[in-house]
Design a protein around this nucleic acid. Structure first.
Lengths: 149, 149
DNA sequence: ATAAATTATATCGTTTACGATACAAAATTA
DNA sequence: TAATTTTGTATCGTAAACGATATAATTTAT
């Protein structure tokens, strides 16, 4: 048995699992709004600044168009956004919030607090989260094809 | 603009992104073996101990059967495992490595080292990884429906 | 023992991810 | 300007995830 091939030694497995479990924890709050977690991410990008190009969103979320385009198509189908052809550059598509998409921001307002409350626990301190954030940011920066040449 | 709804404040987005990017980093090493990352996880479970029930695998990976069954079916199709009906309990299915599946362990042997080398970097210390592991384990333990009543 | 409830796994439908490829609109070059 | 390359987005195919439901075998209750 190769020691390094044990599941218990795998950082990636931990990230994968923590990501899945935390995303699952969002579901009860997102389902009533009729959105999924990736859709929530797109909405956060647009709530922060409306009318962005598809490429802006892909960069922000570090995803590719082949993931984001269908995601946006479903969001358009569900009346959350509209996609209009860019008039400066005909290849680009501008993504804009609909009224419905904009209104969701208020409904989503409490989600961060709910989530924070839910997994506040004695053995997981503020410091741990800060350190986690810092380390994840380093890893993301290191791995992200956009941030390195 | 609700401050808490900024992407930059989202731990879950960081986990999601770090998980994706790190899984992507495995791909160049796994593709030559003809396996995906989730399949690699299943193999690690079986390399550690062969002949496990589907439920053992789902528990270990903290996944559900509706994810694991199709995963195992693809692995059986690709000749990595076989699934036999349990003779003690007829509902259970025992998953066993084939010769091919067993042989992959040697081929995968260097992957952990390759991965470690690849993202060893000046600003990401041994300590950071240890702390990350610890925090993720706490989060996973807290969120995992199996570990809490 | 027979019916009812439980359990282990499987199936189905929808949404993500992502590699590979296609396509059309710029930008560049010849 | 016509041909070529590049770029932004979309499409296609495959593999995960996961809620909901189905199925079959085991337990429990009656």
């Amino acid at each position: 048995m190769h020691e390094q091939l044990k599941l218990s030694n795998q950082i990636c497995f931990r990230l994968y699992t923590a990501s899945r479990l935390l995303t699952q924890a969002y579901r009860p709050f997102l389902a009533p709004l009729g959105i999924t977690y990736p859709q929530y991410l797109v909405l956060m990008v647009l709530w922060e600044q409306d009318n962005q190009m598809v490429s802006d969103i892909t960069h922000r979320l570090m995803l590719d168009t082949n993931t984001v385009t269908p995601l946006l198509q479903r969001m358009e189908r569900d009346g959350l956004v509209v996609r209009t052809k860019g008039n400066v550059d005909g290849r680009q598509r501008m993504v804009s919030l609909t009224k419905k998409g904009r209104q969701l921001e208020d409904k989503a307002q409490d989600i961060p607090r709910c989530m924070a409350t839910q997994w506040s626990q004695p053995d997981l301190e503020e410091d741990d989260i800060a350190k986690l954030t810092e380390t994840l940011d380093k890893m993301i920066h290191h791995q992200n094809p956009h941030t390195k040449e």
